[in-house]
Write a protein that binds this DNA or RNA. Structure first.
Length: 636
DNA sequence: CTAATATCCTGT
DNA sequence: ACAGGATATTAG
């Protein structure tokens, strides 16, 4: 007697009943529901119910499973992987989204063992997990439970990996593994890859990594996202980033100084130095045209050629006061100084192409004054040396900086008021831990920590996620557009030649055309001739398909989820926020004294001989202006 | 309080 | 392309 599962509407294909949930069993391998009373050998124990595998996936079809392993580029790991996937599928404590995520982790090589990281991952990965879950829940190949690598779609609207499908056909099967509809011989012999699905899946996968690279947050308000005071020294750690729970990462970039400010990397809106003369400098923004010397970093002069408001001649010497003095304090104490570079730093090889980028923390090893060649007035100059635990954005190195000898600066011969640090630096490299950290505690903040009330925080989080998710969702929906009406498909159908259309669009196209054409000549009726109906996208005859085009429900559900995500997301985020609140409050209260925030994630010591190591920048002050003396002299 | 600012954006 | 307002921060 044939064993049949339930169809897409949950109706048992054998007894035609729509059984209640208690009477259905979901296969631990392919996820297909089956009507338990209609099974010839239903599971006998509760345990075997939880770990049940349907007739298709157990026994004879088991040889299929290693195929999935192979498709995962996991040589030799196939059976373990299958076992692990089955375990995930059988875990009733997980939601479908959780399961999808765990499968992804498994496939991407992440350990599924440490479940604690799950919570963190969910928060930082944010929307991407949702997208993957949306795709994963609906589009996973029923055989291998992964997003199909090369998806094929049956005329009955079900999606599988090409490899899994071929294996199934190779076993002599000619019905859909999901709904038992017959598979036409042409599809069996020549399955076509559904390329729209390929790009949609690839896009969703990419969105995972693409999300981290830019902290685009275009929430209109000028509110600060991070919970640090404006005089916070050092990196901005995840615990002070309630919105993303990620902190400011090296390489992160923003559209402009205002956006940069919102994430706390560099607070002043205009000025290049954040600092107080009696306290120290926390950060600098490099945007002028300083000379950048590959070998020993750079010393700064000032180029105000682009600044219409301040292009008066320099008429005074700069002195170590105000912000310039703040930098000297940071030099003296060995504080870490955050460096952001603007794309306007045109003459630097290290300037970002656009916007403002956080490049990590530096220490100022020396500072001095020097006469500008053109101006004949003195400028303050500094030797900046990078000392960050994360690699600089321009290196391919996987590791951060290591201490190294100071470069030789020829211009020091001409320098006056050379100042070098005599005491031990507050921020230094710990050989034991192989990372930079606070050796002496950072100076206590004198300013109020930025506070976000919960409502504000929620709306910011929503705005950020919506901004990001919109773009991803837009792209995804574009992949799911009908090739006839160019709109996102309603009731999508996939032809055997793997082209996707709205069901209505496709039917309209061939409205009135019948499968066969009556022919008559001279009063005699001839044998009916088959009408050829070409796919709107390719020369294939799809007349057979058109007799009964089945909606690709899996794709349709993904489209619906993407479209409806807005409300879902708003709700789930409120819940998420609530659960996170306690943690944050704790972090916020602690952060007052504790600014120590090294993130020694990758502390594997590798000595890198990077050509461009220390960067130093000269910062000036609210004082008068120094033309770009040094720059010009160098350009000769 | 004011002036100054290594900016951004909009209007002409 | 350029003038000028808005902006937040510093220190006098």
């Amino acid at each position: 007697m044939a064993q049949l599962p339930c169809d897409n509407d949950g109706v048992c294909l054998r007894c035609k009943a729509n059984p209640p949930q208690e009477e259905t069993l979901t296969c631990g391998t392919c996820g297909t529901p089956w009507h338990a009373p209609c099974l010839s050998s239903p599971p006998e124990t509760l345990a075997s119910t939880l770990q049940w595998h349907c007739p298709d996936c157990s026994g004879e079809i088991d040889p299929l499973l290693p195929v999935s392993g192979a498709a995962v580029h996991e040589p030799g790991g196939g059976s373990d992987l299958v076992a692990a996937i089955r375990a995930i599928e059988a875990d009733e404590s997980l939601t479908e989204a959780d399961k999808a995520k765990k499968r992804q982790e498994l496939l991407s090589g992440k350990s599924a063992a440490d479940g604690d990281e799950e919570e963190e991952g969910k928060k930082s990965a944010g929307f991407d997990v949702d997208v993957l879950a949306a795709l994963g829940e609906n589009l996973n190949c029923s055989f291998c439970i992964q997003l199909p690598e090369r998806p094929v779609t049956t005329p009955c609207g079900h999606n599988f990996c090409l490899k899994c499908f071929e294996k199934w056909i190779g076993q002599g099967k000619r019905t859909c593994a999901k709904c038992r509809s017959p598979i036409p011989p042409k599809m069996a012999s020549n399955p076509r890859i559904n390329s729209s699905l390929v790009s949609a899946i690839r896009l969703a996968k990419c969105s995972k990594s693409a999300g981290a690279e830019n902290g685009k947050a275009n929430a209109a308000s000028g509110r600060i996202y991070v919970t640090i005071p404006p005089d916070h020294f050092g990196p901005i750690p995840a615990e002070n980033d309630p919105v993303r729970n990620q902190g400011v990462l090296v390489g992160e970039s923003w559209e402009d100084r205002l956006e940069c400010r919102q994430w706390g990397a560099h607070f002043p809106h205009v000025a290049g130095i954040a600092g107080q003369s009696s306290y120290g400098a926390q950060s600098v923004a490099l945007s002028g045209g300083y000379k950048d010397d590959e070998d020993h970093g750079e010393c700064g002069g000032r180029d105000l050629s682009g600044n219409k408001r301040t292009n008066k001649d320099q008429s005074f010497d700069q002195k170590f006061e105000k912000s310039n003095e703040a930098l000297r304090v940071s030099c003296k104490m060995g504080y870490p100084v955050r460096v952001v570079r603007s794309h306007k730093e045109k003459r630097s090889a290290y300037a970002p192409e656009a916007g403002v980028r956080y490049d990590g923390v530096y220490r100022i090893e020396k500072c001095w004054r020097k006469v500008g060649i053109q101006g004949s007035f003195k400028v303050c100059r500094y030797l900046f040396v990078r000392c960050d635990n994360e690699p600089a954005p321009w290196t391919s190195d996987e590791h951060g900086d290591r201490p190294r000898p100071l470069p030789n600066i020829p211009e020091l011969k001409m320098a006056t008021e050379l100042f070098e640090r005599k005491e031990s630096p507050s921020w230094n490299f710990d050989e034991g831990e192989s990372c930079w950290k606070w050796i002496k505690p950072p100076p206590a903040s004198l300013k109020a920590v930025n506070v976000l009330d919960p409502e504000e925080r929620k709306s910011m989080k929503r705005a950020i996620k919506a901004a990001h998710s919109n773009t991803v969702r837009e792209k995804l929906l574009k992949e799911f557009s009908c090739m006839i009406c160019r709109q996102v498909m309603t009731l999508p159908v996939t032809t055997p030649c793997a082209h996707n259309f709205c069901k209505a669009c496709l039917e309209d196209k061939f409205a009135g055309k019948t499968l066969v054409r009556e022919r008559s000549r001279g009063g005699r009726t001839l044998r009916a001739q088959k009408n050829i109906m070409n796919c709107p996208c390719c020369p294939n005859d799809i007349s057979d398909f058109l007799q009964n085009p089945q909606v690709n429900r899996e794709v349709m559900e993904v489209i619906e989820k993407l479209k409806n995500k807005e409300e879902d997301k708003a709700e789930s985020e409120e819940a998420e926020d609530a659960s996170v609140d306690e943690k944050e409050e704790k972090a916020e209260s602690e952060s007052e004294e504790n600014c120590e925030t090294t993130n020694p994630e990758d502390e594997t010591p590798i000595v890198s001989e990077e050509a461009e190591q220390p960067r130093k920048r000269a910062k000036l002050d609210t004082d008068t202006v120094v033309p770009a003396t040094m720059v010009e002299s160098d350009m000769k």
